[in-house]
Design a protein around this nucleic acid. Sequence first.
DNA 1: GATTGATTAGTCAAATTTGACCAACGTGCA
DNA 2: TGCACGTTGGTCAAATTTGACTAATCAATC
Lengths: 195, 195
Amino acid sequence: MSSPTRLLVLGVVRIFQPVHGYDVRRELRSWRAESWANVAPGSIYNALKSMARDGLVEVVGTDQVGGRPERTSYRLTAEGEREFGRLVREAFWAVAPSVDPLMPALSFIWTLRREEAIAALEHRIQALRGEAERARLEIARLDDPHSRDQVALMLDLAARRAAAELPWAEELVAKLRAGEYTFADERAPAEPTAR
Amino acid sequence: MSSPTRLLVLGVVRIFQPVHGYDVRRELRSWRAESWANVAPGSIYNALKSMARDGLVEVVGTDQVGGRPERTSYRLTAEGEREFGRLVREAFWAVAPSVDPLMPALSFIWTLRREEAIAALEHRIQALRGEAERARLEIARLDDPHSRDQVALMLDLAARRAAAELPWAEELVAKLRAGEYTFADERAPAEPTAR
DNA sequence: GATTGATTAGTCAAATTTGACCAACGTGCA
DNA sequence: TGCACGTTGGTCAAATTTGACTAATCAATC
């Protein structure tokens, strides 16, 4: 039971309590959390309810503005405070691998034709360059004083990871150009002179 | 409906058809997929069933060895073959961000005491060094001829990503040592001379 | 003063993921 | 022979995630 979502929602409640779900959602949006966590609306509201069930969080009350849906406000319990500390430390000390949408694709790269694989990788290289650039520009444009520093740290890390993937992809393209590996449009390992 | 799990299971069925769920599971284990995809048993069997429902895959038959549970074998349909191509290309061309367990922790780093944050980051630095080293050793030890090359590519990429995180973490530690940011054990932004 | 579009606040069915659990079989070893 | 331990093959309830959808309010714009 570690759940990054739990940590995230619990942490936001901890800072802004009392808060309701939509506040959490808005805050996480300003953290750019869509790109590194599960923060679809259902995930957030579910996290709040399940943490309430588990006594980490409690309902402060509900209010209503005009004819809009009721808002339920939450705050941490003492138990929630303890659990928050535990989750932060756990997340920091555990170097957990994360799911990665590229790996599955890479597993099947050789089902493409060689030329298409090269094209896909080159497209990716361009995209990664753009990604790193975008992160830099976005860092310059951060303004929310509450989250500026942390978000900048994360964008920086993301940019560096993208930058690390770049030479990897470039070297792979070079190998493919040199005839390494066997692709869908080929029968036997390609000889440099063949075809 | 992109699902890396679907792509992964569909792709394995495509290679080894006819196959049953356990075969898929074993193959994905040899790909080290636990570290970059959702391959818990339930995920795999569920993917097979849902793809059968959607007509991407069809049951070849069932057999039973001794008194063990029945095995259901699957193979691709024409529709599944088309969908496989679509999924591979989609996964390659889309540069999707992935969920990352470090980011949520990083969001709350300032809830630790400064010394603890530094210790956590240093632990992480060591872990990343180990990670990169482990990947290198594991590459040398790969033997399954069916998956050797792809797995080596992936381990290499993972090692490089880890290596990219290293200078990021080191620079952050340096900044924390220099008194940047404000932590739980501090009231105001730390002045170099304070404390 | 009406229309258009963004923001607020949240719900819910469907899909996916988790991982503990079950039961049979093989293998080595004392 | 007996028994501990790993492998085979899969199930299932519970938890989580998705994202389309509802429905009201607010701010501009024509």
